[in-house]
C-alpha cells in the first residue's frame, strides 16, 4: 500500500514537470539536510498531536495548526543567524519550535499549564521567548507587523547587525498598518524581512476574493521594497530567497518582502470545516508538493537508509509524546497567578 502510493506520487511529479532534485545545484550537506527534515517533521508531528489534544478537550479556544507550511519557517530559520528576531501572528507553533523553543513548554502552554511558556496565561496565540528572540504570537491580524518593524528599529538603533523576520499571512496584507510599516521601514532602511505566508486563504476567503493585484510580493513596490515570489512548499527555494532577503536587510539596504506560496492542510483553526475548498485541492497539494515528503525523497536519493529515516521518525514521535505527557502531567496555574504579571 505504502509502496504503491509512492509510485503514484512519482508519476504525478513527472506529470507536473517538477523535479525536486534537479532544481538545486547547491544542496546542503547530508547532516544539514537531516536537520532540516527533523525540524519540519517535529512541527508536523507536534501539530498533529496538538490537533488530537484539541479533540480530547485538553487544548481549548483557538488553535491554528501549521501543518503544510513547515518549509517556510524552517527554511528561513536555517539561513538566519543567532540574534535575529522573529515575530508572527497566531499560527505560531511552528515558528516557536523552529526558533528552538522547547516543545514541552509550548505544549504545556497550549494545554494551559503552569509550566507553559506564558504560565498558562497566553495560550496558543500568545507565547514568547526573549531568550530565543521569539517575540510572539500575536492574536490581532496584522498587528505584529509594526511591532516587527519596531524590533528592526531596535536592531538598527543598537547597530547589532541583526534582522527581524516579520511573518504575516495573506489575510494580513490588506490591513492598513502593514502599509504604515512598509513605509516607515523603507523610509528608515530598517533591517526587516517581511515573510508573507500566502496559504491561499485568509480564514475562509481565498486570496483572489480578498486581494487586488496579481502578486503579494509586489505590495511593497510603491515604497521601493523589493519582493520575491517563492515556492514556499520547497525548503530550498525558501532558503535561497531567505538568504538573499536577509543579506539585503543586514547590509542596511532596508526591508525585503518574500511571498511564500504555501498551503495549510488543515482548516483555519480547529473549528473550521474548510468548506471553501475541495478535498481534491488539498489532496493534490499534499501529494505533489508536500515539503516533508519532497525532502524525504531527496534524503533517500542521498542514500539515507529507510532504517535511518524510521529512526528519525520514531525519535520525533517520542519527543512529541514526551512534550504531550509533560504538558498533561503539569499542574494548572496556581490561583494566585491570576493577579500576577499585570505590572512590573
Amino acid at each position: 500500500m505504502v509502496n504503491s502510493t509512492k509510485k503514484n506520487l512519482k508519476v504525478k511529479r513527472k506529470k507536473t514537470g517538477r523535479s525536486v532534485k534537479g532544481s538545486y545545484t547547491n544542496l546542503p550537506g547530508k547532516e544539514e539536510l537531516i536537520e532540516l527534515y527533523k525540524q519540519m517533521l517535529l512541527i508536523r508531528r507536534f501539530e498533529e498531536k496538538a490537533g488530537q489534544l484539541y479533540g480530547m478537550g485538553s487544548i481549548g479556544g483557538f488553535c491554528h495548526l501549521y501543518i503544510g507550511q513547515e518549509a517556510v519557517v524552517v527554511g528561513m530559520q536555517s539561513v538566519s543567524i543567532d540574534g535575529d528576531s522573529v515575530i508572527t501572528s497566531y499560527r505560531d507553533h511552528g515558528h516557536m519550535l523552529a526558533c528552538g523553543m522547547d516543545p514541552k513548554g509550548v505544549m504545556a502552554e497550549l494545554t494551559g499549564r503552569e509550566s507553559g511558556y506564558s504560565k498558562g496565561k497566553g495560550g496558543s496565540m500568545h507565547m514568547f521567548s526573549k531568550e530565543k528572540n521569539f517575540f510572539g504570537g500575536h492574536g490581532i491580524v496584522g498587528a505584529q507587523v509594526p511591532i516587527g518593524v519596531g524590533l528592526a528599529f531596535s536592531h538598527n538603533y543598537k547597530q547589532d547587525g541583526f534582522v527581524c523576520m516579520t511573518y504575516l499571512g495573506d489575510g494580513a496584507v490588506n490591513q492598513g498598518q502593514v502599509y504604515e510599516s512598509f513605509n516607515m521601514s523603507a523610509l528608515w532602511k530598517l533591517p526587516v524581512v517581511f515573510v508573507i505566508e500566502n496559504n491561499k486563504y485568509g480564514m475562509g476567503t481565498s486570496v483572489t476574493r480578498a486581494s487586488a493585484g496579481k502578486s503579494l510580493a509586489e505590495r511593497g513596490k510603491a515604497y521601493g521594497i523589493p519582493g520575491l515570489e517563492v515556492d514556499g512548499m520547497n525548503i530550498f527555494s525558501v532558503r535561497d530567497a531567505g538568504k538573499k532577503a536577509l543579506d539585503y536587510a543586514r547590509k542596511g539596504k532596508g526591508p525585503f518582502i518574500l511571498e511564500m506560496k504555501t498551503y495549510r492542510y488543515r482548516g483555519h483553526s480547529m473549528s473550521d470545516p474548510a468548506k471553501y475548498r475541495t478535498r481534491s485541492e488539498v489532496d493534490a497539494v499534499r501529494q505533489q508538493k508536500d515539503c516533508i515528503e519532497n525532502l524525504k525523497e531527496i534524503l533517500q536519493e542521498q542514500k539515507i537508509t529507510d532504517d535511518h529515516l524510521k529512526k528519525i521518525d520514531s525519535e520525533i514521535k517520542s519527543n512529541v509524546s514526551v512534550a504531550s505527557d509533560f504538558a498533561l502531567d503539569s499542574s494548572l496555574p496556581d490561583k494566585k497567578e491570576l493577579l500576577t504579571d499585570i505590572y512590573i
Partner: peptide
C-alpha cells in the same frame, strides 16, 4: 497605528 506599534516593538527590543 504604525508608529505606536513600532514603539511597542522597540520596547520589546
Amino acid at each position: 497605528q504604525g508608529f505606536a506599534g513600532l514603539g511597542v516593538g522597540a520596547a520589546f527590543g
